[in-house]
């Protein structure tokens, strides 16, 4: 097992292997976070687990994701109720990572995603390394 001493500059990412089960895949997890409009749209889609090329509108990078994840990033994560001031921090961190294509983010970057009033990088790091969320969000060694 790789030992990684994490700090506020360590990158973290959702580890789906810790979450998915035979009866629960990542698409089903993400469907819980869809906004009403996207939920309705995708219910009519023959295959919401269809893989698409999600395009990052800032960097141009392409992320191969499910249609559900793509909708989360492009639409649902911009809705005011996606992450609210009362969303538990661990849930907010999970949603923030989903909203950025599950691209690696540091506690410093996660704080920017959530807003400076929501928390601070040290508290986020503590939650990521000691809280229950450490089971599903893991540090990623830098190259």
């Amino acid at each position: 097992m790789l030992y990684l001493r994490a700090d506020v500059n360590t990158e973290f990412q959702i580890d789906w292997s810790k979450i998915e089960r035979p009866d629960l895949n990542r698409t089903q997890v993400m469907e819980e976070y869809l906004c009403a409009s996207c939920r309705e749209e995708l219910e009519k889609h023959p295959d919401s687990q269809e893989m698409v090329d999600g395009v990052d509108m800032v960097t141009g990078e392409v992320h191969r994701v499910s249609l559900v994840h793509e909708h989360l990033v492009i639409c649902c994560s911009a809705q005011p109720d996606y992450i609210t001031p009362t969303t538990p921090l661990s849930t907010a961190l999970f949603r923030a990572l989903l909203a950025t294509w599950n691209h690696r983010l540091t506690p410093l970057e996660l704080q920017k995603q959530l807003g400076v009033r929501r928390s601070n990088p040290e508290a986020i790091l503590r939650l990521l390394t000691r809280g229950p969320v450490r089971e599903s969000i893991i540090p990623v060694p830098t190259a």
Binding site: D53, V55, V58, T59, G60, E61
Partner: peptide, 18 residues
């Protein structure tokens, strides 16, 4: 720096800041 393989969109018909 560091060496890694990533994908990017090209011939993209939609508006993009870049």
């Amino acid at each position: 720096s560091p060496t890694e393989l990533r994908e990017f969109v090209s011939d993209f018909p939609a508006a993009h800041a870049l």
